[in-house]
């Protein structure tokens, strides 16, 4: 057998091995990314292992509990979810920001162990934007 053919065989074997590994890895690390109403609409989702849900933090809903955890409500246009979270709170996190929580649902309470927050980009509807003078448009 010539060296080139040997290399090809080894390469194909390696690629198969890694494809298999990738497949296994995908299966074990899946997280479903849903909106608040999607979670509420389909109860079946709550049986899934891990969920990531994004929504806006309801104004005035953030409460600090004695054990250092926080609870708050996130909403989208149609529904809301009650969230409990313990961990570092991102600097940007507060009322009315877009928050992303990751965790599981138990008895309609979202138990999060990851929390991300994003500052909304207000480029289009802000006051600055309204009085811009554009040469181009």
């Amino acid at each position: 057998m010539n060296p080139k053919a040997k290399i090809k065989i080894v390469a194909v074997a390696l690629i198969l091995f890694f494809s298999f590994l990738t497949f296994k890895a995908v299966k074990s690390s899946l997280v479903y990314y849903l909106t608040v109403s999607e979670v509420q609409e389909r109860e079946s989702f709550s049986k899934l292992k891990r969920l990531r849900v994004s929504g806006v933090v309801e104004r005035g809903s953030i409460k600090r509990n004695e054990d250092g955890s926080i609870s708050f409500i996130i909403r989208d246009k149609e529904s809301t979810i009650y969230v409990q979270y313990k961990g570092v709170i991102p600097d940007v996190f507060r009322d009315e920001v877009q928050a992303v929580v990751e965790g599981t649902i138990e008895d309609k309470v979202f138990l999060a162990n990851k929390l991300f927050a994003k500052c909304p980009t207000k480029y289009e509807d802000d006051k600055l934007g309204n009085n811009r003078l554009s040469f181009v448009q």
Binding site: F18, A25, V26, S29, L30, V31, Y32, Y33, L34, R50
Partner: peptide, 18 residues
């Protein structure tokens, strides 16, 4: 039709043997 993510364990699992 579902948005599904893979977590850090995905990367770690595949990349470690590499």
């Amino acid at each position: 039709g579902e948005k599904i993510l893979v977590g850090p364990s995905f990367y770690n699992l595949v990349n470690f043997p590499n």
